[in-house]
């Protein structure tokens, strides 16, 4: 793909950073994945750790994350990103390792790998993109699908009696001693994105300090799977998803100023 859609001489503002490739996202318009990718890569850019970071892509809509994230990456089997990240981190303990996973990947098929990697306190960052649906396969019910939410495999709405309640895996794993920093953020407003970015910065700082697993849930959307306009997904996040998945820190380190975020990064 051409890097410059605009003639370089005419460019008044260039926000290109080396950690994001110039490949245009394949995500549907309004999808939260693109925003989550961007903010994650901005942090890696700002920390200057591109050379020292290895990412793990899941199976899900973000299976091609490595087309956009310009760091060394491995594509894991569905649900196994935490095991793959463990393998990488154990042989390259001085590198930064993150996994980037959807709700189906992390909280259904990969629950065991997620729980045990965190229980071992693997010194990695787990980015958990919760869009309450299986986006990639066409909008089936996910472990985090809302009660009553219609999906292609819960066409009458999620019936919690037979299908269970949305799985609060983030609250679950926060119980584990290996989890050092657990937070739930979102990407539905510019302000939320700024808060998310700070959380990611902290997580990498903790990883540098070898504190254990950092887990960031990102409440996201799926306009295609939810069959909504991107604008409508924002109110759905606020009115429905936040009921089950309220944003905010779930587990924060006791010690006070562990993070030394520079003024520039605070912006």
């Amino acid at each position: 793909m051409e890097q410059f859609l605009i003639n370089p001489e005419c460019l008044v503002y260039d926000n290109h950073i080396e950690t994001l490739s110039s490949t245009p996202f394949h995500y549907c318009p309004g999808c939260g994945h693109g925003v989550a990718h961007k903010v994650l890569m901005e942090v890696i850019h700002e920390l200057g750790i591109q050379e020292d970071t290895i990412g793990v892509a899941p199976v899900g809509c973000s299976v091609f994350a490595y087309h956009y994230m310009n760091v060394d990456m491995q594509e894991a089997a569905h649900g196994r990103a935490c095991a793959v990240a463990t393998g990488i981190k154990r042989v390259l303990p001085e590198k930064y390792v993150f996994s980037y996973q959807g709700d189906g990947d992390l909280a259904a098929i990969g629950t065991a790998e997620t729980v045990h990697a965190i229980n071992r306190g693997e010194n990695i960052l787990i980015m958990f993109i919760n869009n309450a649906i299986y986006g990639m396969t066409g909008g089936q019910m996910a472990p985090t699908t809302m009660p009553g939410q219609k999906t292609s495999t819960s066409p009458y709405g999620r019936d919690v009696l037979s299908m269970g309640n949305p799985l609060k895996i983030t609250e679950m794993i926060a119980q584990l001693p290996g989890a050092y920093y657990v937070t739930r953020q979102s990407v539905h407003t510019p302000k939320a994105v700024r808060v998310l970015k700070k959380a990611i910065l902290k997580a990498f700082q903790y990883q540098k300090e070898k504190k254990g697993t950092c887990f960031i849930e990102v409440v996201s959307n799926c306009p295609s799977g939810w069959k909504m306009t991107p604008v409508d997904t924002i109110s759905y996040i606020e009115n429905e998803m936040f009921k089950f998945f309220p944003p905010g820190d779930i587990k924060v380190p006791d010690a006070k100023p562990l993070v030394t975020v520079t003024a520039e990064q605070e912006n």
């Binding site: 290895i54 894991a76 095991a83 793959v84 990240a85 393998g87 990488i88």
Partner: peptide, 11 residues
């Protein structure tokens, strides 16, 4: 899958 990750990291 740990084998996959570690082998992919060159070990």
């Amino acid at each position: 899958n740990m084998v996959y990750g570690a082998a992919g990291a060159g070990a």
